[in-house]
Amino acid sequence: MGLADWGDVPTWIGGAGALAAGWFAYQTIRSQRQQIGEQQAFIVEQTRFMDDQRQNLELERAELRAQAGERRVSQGRKISLDFRTSGSTGRDERGHSTGYNAWWVEVGNGSSDPIHDVTVKFGQAYTAVKATDREVVHHPDGGRRPVPVPIVPAGHRVIFESPEWPEATVDNNRPVLLFTDDAGVRWRHDSYGKLEEVPADGAP
């Protein structure tokens, strides 16, 4: 066996060094890829978590808004509006009324709090001409109240009476109740049972 060819030793050492450098670079790249993969997985997980949190917050806010809306309208739903035509435009041969020329409207506060600035309007241009508190009919003034009525206590009922019109005009001037609840919100309750908040500009 002959002696080693020392002329090739530097080449061998250089090749071994290159191999080691390549292995080190491969391990570095592999480690970096693994770290990048872990970071991407973490970002995906965090994004999913944040989306879940956002959806939960949106649901909670929607629930809170619904609860606030329910509380806002709860008193208004306990205010009743009952009405009928009244008066007479004439009688037939049997003495029965042949038609009516006014509205008789009863507003009942079935809530546990008072309502304020209560009035009934008829059609686009008319306001009740008389208001009477049914709970104090034995009062010296007969329960007569100004229109609008400043306050209707809990459990009280107020009767509003419309002006008189020709019989054919009565149904064109159906009653609409306007009142302010105890939280200061203004409401409109029409003769078809629709309850809605009055806009801030006060438009009826």
Rank of each mutant, 00 (worst) to 15 (best):
I115H: 12
R134S: 14
V147C: 07
D113R: 15
K130R: 14
E161Q: 03
P148N: 06
V170F: 01
P163C: 03
G110N: 09
H138M: 07
I115P: 12
I115K: 08
T169G: 00
H156G: 01
S162L: 05
S162Y: 04
T132L: 13
R145A: 14
G108Y: 07
T132A: 12
P114K: 10
A154K: 03
S162R: 02
A168M: 03
P150V: 01
D141I: 06
A125R: 10
G155A: 12
S162M: 02
D117C: 07
H116G: 01
E164W: 06
N109V: 08
V136P: 08
V158C: 05
R134Y: 15
H139V: 02
F122R: 03
A131Y: 15
Q124C: 04
P148M: 05
E167G: 05
I151M: 13
P153K: 05
S112T: 13
S111C: 07
F122W: 05
G142V: 07
G143S: 04
R145E: 15
D113G: 06
V120H: 10
G123Y: 09
E106H: 01
V158R: 00
P148F: 02
Q124R: 07
P163N: 04
P146V: 10
V136G: 00
E164L: 07
S112L: 08
H139S: 15
V170C: 01
V147M: 02
R145C: 12
V137M: 12
V137Y: 11
T132C: 14
T169W: 00
V158Q: 02
P114L: 10
G123E: 06
I159H: 03
V158S: 00
I151L: 07
T169H: 04
H116Y: 15
G108R: 00
W165I: 12
D117A: 12
F160R: 02
I151T: 14
V137L: 15
V136I: 13
N109S: 05
F160H: 02
T119K: 09
I115C: 13
H138S: 13
P166N: 10
P146C: 10
V137Q: 13
E161F: 00
E106T: 14
P140T: 08
V170M: 03
P153I: 11
E164V: 13
A168E: 08
E135I: 09
